[in-house]
Amino acid sequence: MRKLVNLQPTKLQTLILGALPFIAVILIYLVASDLRLQENPKDKLLPAFSTMGETLLRLTTEESRRTGDIIFWGDTFASLERMAMGVGISALIALLFGLAQGSFPLVRAKLSPFTTAIAMVPPMAMLPVLFIVFGLGELSKVVLIIIGITPFLIRDLQQRVQELPEEQWIKAQTLGANSWQLMTRMVLPQMMPRLIDAVRLSMGAAWLFLIAAEAIAANEGLGYRIFLVRRYMAMDTILPYVAWITVLAICADQLLRQINRRVFPWYQK
């Protein structure tokens, strides 16, 4: 008998073992929900799948009486827009500063300690400041994502630039590259896939900041909705929304992963 650490699962076993926790969670929920509903058919805590389905159908098809929009899609669109803007702007800023700090010792000496200090400011503590400065509109939510993830992205990218082998810098200079060409032909192209990797890592934090900002002040958005219906203990809305946010997060992650694979075939982990 081999040792446990040397046992490799077959393909089928991998599939089954991977699916098992999902099935287990669903089964436990089904049983628990059923038990509670038998006791009290009006129980809101663990709604049946059928109830959640009905609610979801209503949210995805019926127009809101107040705005005329379809609530579910309106929320999704609003949140994704904030997310895309926040993450996109953060990535751009990070590219600019990360590259400069990684490549130029002079810039690094000046800005690195500052970035490190900024990265230590708890972004959530800044949220009131943002609301005061930028108002309760879209801007403050986007800015919260930006100040939440940009310091991490900058520091990560600076690290990646500094990890480029010294040999490459020398070689490129012997081929006639000036500082600008070193950036455009050597550093930038090699940093793009690394930036996407860093963005993938920071997405979890970005969702956290988005939902927190929406919970506190918004008119629509996925985070706004779940905090709104919390008052009515509307678990039949909250649970499908949480599942939907999870699906969106997984899709965004996979999308970025695929971009990295397709666009940068040389980038092998």
Binding site: E167, P189, F264, Y267
Partner: peptide, 9 residues
């Protein structure tokens, strides 16, 4: 150099 002389991208 012994290694890293060429550009991986």
């Amino acid at each position: 150099f012994q290694k890293y002389s060429v550009f991986p991208h």
